[in-house]
């Protein structure tokens, strides 16, 4: 049990996917200008990442490793993720329109979100068991959401500040992300 708690803390804070592992930075800067879009993106990532983590683990262990096809990992993972995203989109549109209205526009973006693919690859490289992979995927996704929402909060304030012209927009965004990353740096060595 303690193992899992440590894993969760490690994935959310210590190895935060956005600020410590540098994965998923495009949506991090792209959708963090407003709190609403940030929350939508965070939810969509949590939703997809848990499913992708589980499915890619099964594909890797039961298909690729059994038949010695590890060199096809990159190709098969991206196909799994792309088709999963497409499937989730279709499913949500038909059966849960309310949720689709909230997450819909973020789903296509997730295919090229390197956080999803990155976590799937990390799960395999760390040789996690199925439950560990599931817990890790969920915790990484929560860490992604946490960082994204915090960052969106900071960015909404920055709009009100008087920023020098060359520093505006992405530039100040990156510096802010650096400061946020510095804050997360304090968790290092905790686990």
């Amino acid at each position: 049990m303690t193992d899992y708690i440590l894993l969760i803390v490690a994935c959310i804070f210590v190895n935060n996917i956005l600020l410590m592992q540098y994965l998923g930075n495009c949506p991090f800067l792209g959708v963090s200008k407003k709190m609403e879009t940030a929350v939508g993106m965070a939810m969509a990532v949590i939703f997809v990442l848990v499913m992708a983590g589980a499915i890619t683990w099964i594909v890797d262990v039961y298909l690729l490793k059994t038949f010695g096809l590890e060199y096809l990992r990159t190709l098969s993972f991206i196909l799994v993720i792309a088709s999963l995203v497409q499937f989730v989109e279709m499913f949500l549109r038909k059966s849960i329109p309310g949720l689709y209205a909230g997450l819909g526009i973020f789903l296509p973006l997730i295919t090229t979100n390197c956080a999803v693919m990155g976590v799937c690859l990390i799960n395999i490289m760390e040789e996690y068991s199925f439950t560990q992979a599931l817990v890790a995927s969920f915790s990484y996704a929560v860490g992604f959401g946490l960082a994204l929402v915090l960052f969106a909060g900071v960015r909404e304030r920055i709009i009100l500040a008087r920023v020098p012209k060359p520093l505006q927009d992405t530039s100040i965004g990156l510096v802010t992300a650096g400061m946020l990353s510095l804050a997360f740096f304090a968790f290092k060595g905790m686990v």
């Binding site: 012209k165 992405t170 990156l174 990353s181």
Partner: peptide
């Protein structure tokens, strides 16, 4: 990690 973000942000500023 923090240095990476800050450094890229400042380089972007210089480019601008």
């Amino acid at each position: 990690a923090p240095g990476a973000f800050v450094c890229l942000g400042l380089m972007l500023c210089i480019m601008n």
